[in-house]
Design a protein around this nucleic acid. Structure first.
Length: 547
RNA sequence: GGCCUUGUGGUCAAGCGGUUAAGACGGAGCCCUCUCAAGGCUCAAUCCCGGGUUCGAUUCCCGGCAAGGUCACCA
C-alpha cells in the first residue's frame, strides 16, 4: 500500500509545517539546571474549583521554587465544552489566590511557545498525524458509534477488555481498495494509532509523586484525530508537552490509567517522555465513605464559596500547602514571618493518598493568618468583602473607617503581646462587629439572674461609670458596683462563702456585658464601652434593665 | 468485572526492620482570667486483616479485605 498517497488523501492540508519546522520553532528552553516547566491545562468549561487550585498550586510551586516556568494552556479540543469567559475566569481566580502564570493563553509575556489554545495548533497535530500514517503507525477508521457500541457489548458479555484492539480493531487491516472505497463514498473517519504494544509486557515507571508504579503496555488503537480533524487529549498532550518543553506534568490521578497510551504516543512520535506526577484528589466523607469532591454536590469545592464566605486567599493557599507538603506546617511554625513562597516545596513529599478536605483545619489556618494582619490591612480585606457581599448596612458602617479600625484594634488585640484570633473569615468577622452599630444591635437578653439582681447591678454600675477611667479603674468600679448589688467583689470571697452572695464578680460583669454587647462573651468590656462612648453605653445599660 | 493506585488516632500525617510510634487540627480537662478568644500545661485516641521472612516487623514478601480511580471521536 502506498502510505504516502494514503496520508495525502487523509490529510490533504497544504500548509502543514514540517516536523523539523516544529522542532526549530519550539527549541528546548534555556533554563538553569533543575528548573521545572509546568502547566495548568484546563478545558475551557466549568470554572476552576478547589481541586484545580490544589493542583495548580503544586505546579506553580514546582516551577517557581526551581526558577522555572508555569504556563497556561487551554485544552479546547472539545467544542461542546466551551464556555464563554472561562479563560479569563481561570486567570482571575488564580490571581485572587496569588498564583501567576509566566506565559500562556491571555497572559502578557514572552509566549514564545504558543499558541496556547489547542485549536489554534491544529496544523502541528495534523502534520504529526500525517507522518504517523506515512510510517504505517496510524490508520483511518470508519467504524460508526453504533458498531463501536456493539463490539463493546460483545466484549463485556465475553468478559474481555473493552476497546479497539487486536481482532476487534476492524479497520486496522483494511485493504487499500476498502479504504479508498469508503473514502470515495464520503464516509467520515477518525485516525487511530496502530498500537505496537503488548499487554503482557509490564514496566515499572517512576512517578514523581507516587514513586514506582507498574504500567502495562498499551495495545489500544486509540483515536488520535477525531472526525473533525481535531486531536484527542492524548495526542495533543504528547505533542504540546513536548513542544512547550514541559518537564513535569502534574495532573490528577484519574490520568494514571491512560499513562500507557501517553507513553506509547511519546515513543512513536520520537519524543522524550516528560516526568509525571499524579496527584491524589481531594476527598470528603459522604454517607460514611470517602469520595472525591464533586463539583455538583459540594459547594465547598467552588472557589466562589471561599470568596463569598470571605476566606482570606492566602489562608486557603496555606491550607492547601499543608496538604501538599505536610512538613510545610512545621516550617511555617519555625518561620512565622516568612513568605510561604520561601518554603522549599518538594513534589516527592506530596501525599500518596487522597486527603479529606478538612474545614476545621482551614479555619484554624485562616484564624492564624488573619491574626497577623494589622487593623489597617484587616480593614482593607473586610471592606473588599463588604463591598461585594455585604449588606447595605455593612457598607454604610464601613464608610467610617476610623471607627471600624478602632473596633478591629480591639478585636484583634493589636498592640498586645498576645493577638486575639477571633476572625476566621470576612463574613463572620463582619458579623462579629455588629453590636458596635445601633442599627445592627438587636439583643435578645438572657440573664441568668433574677430581675432584681440584674437591675441592681446595672444601676450601681451606671452610677459610677466614668468613660475616662483606665482599665483597672474601670474594673475597680465594677467590683464596687458588684458588691453594692450583692455580688462578691473578689473571687476568693465568693469561693470561701458562695451562699452569702448572689454571684461572683464575673457574674456581675456578665450582666453588664450582656447589656452592652447582647452576649455573655466579648473582648475587653472596658474598651468596648470606650469605643461605644458614654452616651450609647449608658443607653444600652438602661435599655437592658428588666421591666 | 479487568487493570492501576492507596490503606498509621475522628482528620492531615512523620517514621520505613529494634522508637515511650513525632507534630498539627478536632475532642476532654486544668491554669491564666471580668466573659470569650488567645496563650501555657495535661489527657484520651492510631500502625486494615491473615500468613510468612527475621532474634525482632507499622516498616520487607505473599495472600485477603476495604477505599479510590479508570475502562469514549470528554478532558
Amino acid at each position: 500500500m502506498d502510505l504516502k498517497k494514503l496520508a495525502a488523501r487523509l490529510i490533504p492540508d497544504e500548509d502543514l509545517p514540517s516536523l523539523e519546522d516544529c522542532e526549530r520553532a519550539y527549541p528546548p528552553r534555556k533554563l538553569k539546571e533543575g528548573a521545572e516547566v509546568t502547566r495548568l491545562a484546563p478545558s475551557p468549561t466549568g470554572f476552576i474549583h478547589l481541586g484545580n487550585l490544589y493542583s495548580a498550586l503544586a505546579d506553580e510551586r514546582a516551577a517557581h521554587t526551581t526558577g522555572g516556568i508555569f504556563y497556561l494552556r487551554i485544552e479546547d479540543t472539545d467544542e461542546k465544552r466551551r464556555v464563554e469567559g472561562a479563560v479569563e475566569s481561570v486567570i482571575r481566580s488564580l490571581d485572587y489566590f496569588g498564583l501567576k502564570f509566566d506565559e500562556g493563553a491571555e497572559i502578557v509575556g514572552e509566549n514564545a511557545y504558543g499558541p496556547y489554545y489547542q485549536r489554534r495548533r491544529a496544523p502541528i497535530y495534523r502534520a504529526f498525524a500525517k507522518d504517523l500514517i506515512e510510517r504505517g503507525l496510524a490508520y483511518p477508521c470508519f467504524c460508526t458509534e453504533e458498531e463501536l457500541d456493539e463490539t463493546r457489548k460483545i466484549q463485556t458479555e465475553r468478559k474481555e477488555v473493552t476497546g479497539y484492539y487486536g481482532a476487534y480493531a476492524k479497520c486496522r487491516n483494511l485493504s487499500e481498495e476498502q479504504i479508498y472505497a469508503a473514502l470515495d463514498s464520503g464516509k467520515p473517519f477518525v485516525i487511530r494509532l496502530k498500537s505496537q504494544g503488548d499487554v503482557n509486557i509490564k514496566h515499572t515507571f517512576r512517578d514523581a509523586i507516587k514513586g514506582g508504579i507498574t504500567v502495562t503496555e498499551n495495545n489500544q488503537d486509540v483515536v488520535i484525530l477525531k472526525s473533525d480533524g481535531i486531536p484527542t487529549y492524548h495526542f495533543a498532550h504528547a505533542i504540546d508537552d513536548h513542544f512547550m518543553r514541559t518537564t513535569l506534568v502534574i495532573r490528577g490521578e484519574e490520568w494514571l490509567s491512560s499513562l500507557p497510551i501517553h507513553i506509547e504516543l511519546f515513543k512513536v512520535l520520537g519524543f522524550d517522555l516528560p516526568r509525571y506526577g499524579h496527584t491524589c484528589s481531594l476527598m470528603k466523607v459522604d454517607g460514611g465513605t470517602k469520595r472525591k469532591l464533586s463539583k455538583r454536590k459540594d459547594p465547598e469545592l467552588s472557589l466562589d464559596f471561599y470568596r463569598g464566605a470571605g476566606y482570606y486567599p492566602q489562608a486557603v493557599i496555606k491550607y492547601l500547602m499543608t496538604i501538599l507538603n505536610s512538613n510545610f506546617e512545621e516550617w511555617a511554625a519555625k518561620h512565622p514571618e516568612e513568605d510561604y513562597k520561601n518554603f522549599p516545596f518538594s513534589v516527592s513529599k506530596m501525599g500518596k493518598s487522597g486527603a479529606l478536605f478538612d474545614l476545621d483545619k482551614l479555619n484554624d489556618v485562616s484564624r492564624d493568618e488573619l491574626s497577623k494582619l494589622t487593623p489597617e490591612e484587616m480593614y482593607g480585606f473586610l471592606n473588599g468583602w463588604v463591598k461585594e457581599f455585604g449588606t447595605a448596612a455593612d457598607r454604610a458602617h464601613f464608610e467610617d473607617r476610623e471607627y471600624i479600625q478602632k473596633i478591629l484594634a480591639l478585636i484583634m488585640g493589636a498592640g498586645q503581646k498576645k493577638r486575639r484570633k477571633d476572625i476566621v473569615r470576612a463574613e463572620q468577622g463582619v458579623r462579629l462587629m455588629d453590636y458596635f452599630f445601633d442599627d445592627a444591635f438587636a439583643p435578645e437578653y438572657s440573664f441568668r439572674f433574677e430581675a432584681d439582681a440584674v437591675n441592681a447591678m446595672l444601676t450601681a454600675f451606671a452610677e459610677t461609670y466614668d468613660e475616662n477611667d483606665d482599665n483597672s479603674a474601670w474594673f475597680a468600679k465594677l467590683k464596687q458596683a458588684a458588691a453594692k448589688a450583692g455580688f462578691a467583689a473578689e473571687n476568693a470571697e465568693y469561693k470561701a462563702n458562695p451562699s452569702a452572695y448572689k454571684g461572683n464578680v464575673s457574674d456581675a460583669a456578665e450582666i453588664v456585658r450582656i447589656a452592652i454587647t447582647g452576649s455573655p462573651n466579648s473582648p475587653d468590656l472596658c474598651t468596648v464601652m470606650g469605643i461605644l462612648g458614654r452616651e450609647r453605653s449608658l443607653a444600652r445599660i438602661a435599655a437592658a434593665k428588666v421591666k
